[in-house]
């Protein structure tokens, strides 16, 4: 029996504790916004926040999420994520869109830990997320705009 919190909701499960969190999210609780890309922590498509830190959910056994708080792309209550989503729409960031949940979760953590990231900080935070469509330029614009919007709201 494993208890964890997903998007502020407590969940108790008897799923296989060795199953990576990614597959628990996708197949057991139908939160399919988090994507499978490589299964080796190389592409970042499966990025979620675990107690506020970005992790590759394809590598984390469910057991290690026990008692932890998970935030996914479906969470509609994170100010940084909301600002990023608005900026993503404004700049028409996604193409195929498959990697964007992971991109947005990495960017969310960046803005939570750094209110005004410079180019190096953005690059460092985002270099773990591959986009095959090549939307990096717009991701950079989206992050900068969201940072500005958040600063304005304070």
């Amino acid at each position: 029996m494993i208890k964890l919190t997903i998007n502020q909701q407590e969940i108790t499960t008897q799923a296989d504790p060795e199953m990576p969190l990614l597959w628990f999210l996708r197949e057991e609780v139908q939160l399919t916004g988090t994507k499978f890309g490589c299964g080796q922590g190389l592409c970042g498509a499966c990025t979620v926040l675990l107690d506020g830190k970005p992790i590759r959910s394809c590598l984390l056994p469910l057991a290690q999420a026990k008692g932890k708080s998970i935030e996914t792309i479906e969470n509609d209550n994170i100010p940084e994520l909301q600002a990023l989503q608005a900026a993503w729409l404004e700049h028409s960031v996604p193409q195929c869109g498959y990697c964007q949940s992971g991109q947005l979760m990495s960017a969310t953590h960046l803005l939570q830990s750094n209110k005004a990231p410079d180019n190096d900080a953005i690059r460092s935070a985002m270099s773990g997320n591959i986009c095959r469509c090549g939307t990096y330029e717009r991701i950079a614009k989206g992050i900068n705009q969201a940072a500005l919007e958040l600063a304005r709201e304070i």
Binding site: L31, T32, G33, K35, F36, W88, L89, V93, Y98, Q100
Partner: peptide, 17 residues
Amino acid sequence: DMAEKVDGRAKFGIDVS
């Protein structure tokens, strides 16, 4: 197809259940 691609709603083939 943009809006559904920023909040996890977009259903790709792998999301069909």
